[in-house]
Write a protein that binds this DNA or RNA. Structure first.
Lengths: 158, 158
DNA sequence: ATAAACTTGTTGCAAATGCAACGATTTCTG
DNA sequence: CAGAAATCGTTGCATTTGCAACAAGTTTAT
């Protein structure tokens, strides 16, 4: 990927405003949304955000290895591994060595984990609807912009 | 309990898609942008992101207390305090007790710090222009949406 | 067939983080 | 004005994080 600063040079504004800097604004929005959600996850389900991401991914994919999750939800594999260990300890997921490739670990939700997600996912869907309502007509551009950013910077980073 | 691996794993809520969940997408975009920038800050200036935020805020405000920075850039005060200690150790900022209120600490850039920002800020401005170019017509809605999110969740969180 | 190279998941370790507690100061209240 | 309450910045502590190293397993190349 090209150097982030490698664009045609122009006279730079002497006035730089942090509060208008998009990377800062995105980080701030992410932090505020995460904190709001994390409070609910933790209070109602005892889940950290890494825990939550693993659970949600498993509820979608049905079965996944640590590596699958690492790639799909963009978390360090050690973070995934530790989340999986916690969740297994709580009986929310099951871990098994894969038959086809014994390096891999198959992760699946247990019945208890499935039950938790049946309760949790509607709340997440509700939150999503709330955000879309809050953003109104700006949501389309917002979502499109996120897609662009995620695609543009995906390979250049981990 | 049933063996989780006996059952062909089924997604519990086909309606919910993590990759479409806005809080997740914002967090991912923030992470990718932060990693891209953090590489540059660290490689070229030896600054972590907390360091960078403190430096940028000081270059704007000229003088600020830990409390000011905590509020403006939404970082824990201990994080600000430690960043300030690091930066003072490197001679990039100066710390002194405030005259008017002796609980406060006045933070200012040193000449060395100012020189670093004179080199750094044009790169940041360049990066901002690059993002705006990448997002094209979606940038307006994107930026408006960020404003709404930041405002809506600002008080409900920290 | 076999050694080298690579992949996967876990763990040790150092650094970063969040939170609470604290001393020092200032402001509030009666 | 005095005592209580609040604010500010730092620090101790436990937890979390990222990175590198590692064992176990698989693929590649000769």
């Amino acid at each position: 990927m090209t150097d982030p600063f490698d664009i045609p040079a122009e006279p730079s504004d002497p006035q730089f405003d942090l509060s208008r800097f998009s990377p800062y604004r995105v980080a701030l929005a992410a932090q505020l949304l995460s904190e709001t959600l994390a409070r609910v996850y933790r209070a109602r389900f005892g889940l950290s955000i890494p825990d939550w991401r693993v659970m949600v991914h498993l509820s979608q994919s049905g079965r996944a290895s640590v590596r699958d999750i690492e790639a799909k939800v963009v978390m360090e594999k050690s973070k995934v591994s530790r989340a999986a260990a916690r969740l297994e300890g709580r009986g929310l997921i099951a871990k098994r060595q894969s038959e086809s490739d014994k390096r891999l670990v198959d992760l699946t939700l247990t019945d208890a984990g499935q039950a938790m997600m049946d309760e949790l996912l509607p709340l997440a869907a509700q939150f999503q609807r709330r955000i879309e309502a809050q953003l109104g007509t700006d949501f389309a551009g917002f979502d499109a912009a996120l897609s662009r950013i995620i695609e543009a910077y995906h390979d250049s980073s981990l």
